[in-house]
């Protein structure tokens, strides 16, 4: 990573935790975890609470839907590591890898429900252009998405627009397929806390 403190500036207890993670997973500690655990009272802890609520809190969107939205936002932000990580979680949650890869490669033709497609369109515009207007919102409501679902999707969008920026700025490493699979299993079983 571009800041040495994020690689090796953690306290002793965290370093022990990282040693355990390395021993159990037989993989390097993901950069996302290193950043979350660096001086966690500043960013990591409050952000973990937010992310857990957005991704696993009560919502009419399924876990798979929200993970796919996260992957989609990350793809729009050119963040490969976040796209692959959360595409893996979505595929595991849906138990349908083909659906996830189809949605990420061509949203228009992929076999996803209209509400999710319309919402993803809005998230893509918001991520790319930093703004949406009333017509964009109306198009999502017209696809059968509730006001609450839009709010929930915007929370997912917020979390990923934050994390993607940190990933690209701090220079998170894109790991191999085994790391994505292991990370996805963990995030599906344990969430973000």
């Amino acid at each position: 990573m571009r800041l040495t403190i994020l690689d090796s500036g953690h306290g002793l207890r965290t370093k022990v935790l990282f040693a355990v993670i390395r021993a159990v997973s037989r993989l390097p500690v993901p950069d996302a975890i290193k950043v979350n655990r660096y001086r966690p009272d500043f960013y990591g802890m409050p952000m973990r609470e937010l992310t857990q609520e957005a991704m696993r809190g009560p919502s009419a969107w399924s876990v798979g839907d929200r993970e796919l939205m996260g992957a989609f936002v990350s793809k729009t932000n050119n963040c490969e590591v976040c796209t692959k990580t959360h595409a893996s979680v979505a595929a595991m949650a849906y138990q349908d890898e083909a659906k996830v890869s189809a949605a990420l490669s061509d949203l228009e033709t992929a076999a996803v429900d209209e509400p999710l497609r319309a919402t993803s369109h809005m998230l893509r515009k918001l991520t790319r252009e930093h703004a949406v207007d009333a017509d964009d919102v109306r198009a999502v409501l017209a696809a059968g998405v509730s006001r609450e679902q839009i709010e929930d999707a915007l929370a997912v969008c917020f979390a990923f627009n934050t994390v993607d920026r940190l990933s690209r700025t701090f220079g998170w490493v894109v790991s191999g397929p085994k790391a994505f699979e292991t990370g996805a299993k963990f995030l599906l079983a344990r969430g973000y806390r």
Partner: peptide, 26 residues
């Protein structure tokens, strides 16, 4: 580290508020 975190959350917040404002207007 802190300044970059603030910048990332700031931009994500502006996006979020823009969209919520549009939703409220509708």
């Amino acid at each position: 580290f802190e300044i970059v975190v603030c910048a990332a959350i700031g931009q994500a917040s502006r996006q979020y508020h823009t969209a919520l404002t549009a939703l409220k207007a509708v």
